[in-house]
Write a protein that binds this DNA or RNA. Sequence first.
RNA 1: CGGGGUGUAGCGCAGUUGGUAGCGCACAGCGUUUGGGACGCUGGGGUCGGAGGUUCGAGUCCUCUCACCCCGACCA
Length: 477
Amino acid sequence: MVQKLTPRSVDDSTWYTDVVQAAELADYSPVRGCMVIRPYGYAIWESMQQYLDQRFKAGGHQPAYFPLFIPQSFIQKEAEHIEGFAPQLAVVTHGGGEKLEEPLIVRPTSETIINAMYAKWIRSYRDLPILYYQWCNVVRWEMRTRLFLRTTEFLWHEGHTAHATADEAMKEVMAILDIYRELAQNEMAMPVIPGRKSDSEKFAGADATWTIEAMMGNKWALQAGTSHFLGQHFAKVFNIQFLDESNQLQMVWQTSWAVTTRLVGALVMVHGDDQGLRLPPRMAPIQVVLVPIWKTEEERCQVMAVAERVRAELGQHVRLKVDDRDDLSPGFKFNDWEMRGVPLRIELGPKDVQNNQAVLARRDMPARQNKCFVSLDALLSEVRKLLDDIQRNLYAQALRFRDENTFHPGNLEELTDAVGKGFARAYWCGSAECENRMKETTRATIRCVPMDQEKEPGHCVICGQAASEKAIFARSF
RNA sequence: CGGGGUGUAGCGCAGUUGGUAGCGCACAGCGUUUGGGACGCUGGGGUCGGAGGUUCGAGUCCUCUCACCCCGACCA
């Protein structure tokens, strides 16, 4: 159940797989590259789903479901799309014991099949905008996989919208990116940099891709969510046309966007420490765990009576678990729940019951030094306050870590040095030549051109030519 | 597909010059324990990744094969 974790400082990659398995978030499956998401890991994903689902619906989006299988010919319609995805496709060639007339692609993303349907449904400007999304699995045949961060099959939502104007579609792209940013920062306590992808990094078939990029605990970047402006690429190949107010035939403008179960891995990577997970309260399946302590049967009765009362009262307001397993020592449970990242622990023993108090220990600080007593009467308000505080503190810690590991190089040599240590924020002239040259010399990539920056003229960190924008350079997952 | 590594109990491992498989953890039962990873006793659990070969005899030697992990190329 509880095992020793490889310390992060020894091997961050082994630490990660240790934590994911020890905390029972996920396990390797019999199928190479695939994973089993266990209830605790799935509960974290559900926290993300619930937040996003409510945000999407509030913005007028509607969930729907499109099929897993896509006719091969659909995928092949958009040149850039097929070029991008061809190496990653899983193809079904047989069904019912017979070879299929046309092979079926297991969806790597659903632009093609959804847009084939949109072409059927859209006739008039009155049909627009269409704001659909679906929660589903997708399959991409990856070379190398890591639990949550990159698996052959993964879960996500994908939004697919169609609009009458480019302007409206762009607003949609930005609105969704903002929801992703808020999910990351406010719910996951994970600072992110919203920005635009370079052409080489953008979605295959998009005009432009916007992203939120986060720094993981090993100082690498992780693309945490993307929102694409598809322009009219798919409208053209699937012939999605409508009549506007003046009876003119027009092509729709489209967006697509997604975040995936990778975010569960991001949560682990960003906040975890040598003791295991540290979950931000807003995402934690269990926000507070109560560990009762007793010696004698009489003490057990007294303590459990109070524990039950706490469960009845506090349990209405926070996600609380009372760990009443009687075959494990309190010390074991402390370590166990810390490893599983529960933000706040209540210790309740005979002495506490006597004094009408409990001990609170927070996961975001070294526990032994930071325990505090709290009156049972003030438990709810204190727990609420601490959970808020933990949420804020985890964000602050992650932000400080990112800032401390972000550098501002002025030339290629400094850039090479910087991307070996963390993020580099530097001018880029925007040319693919410079991007390629940098990739070859540094093993890093351009993660994004941040939206939030002053447009002051400078000099490209690679070629020295005039440049007007800074980009984030980093090694990435 | 290249480089590295590992396959022996659920997990982690040991197994000598070939001689018929063991340790720790976990698991089950009982008892004592419980304020930072408790302890004792008893017990269950194995086609040694697979195939072939050498041998009186293979976890061990030889050949082939498969799987998985880590590092790269590809990617959310």
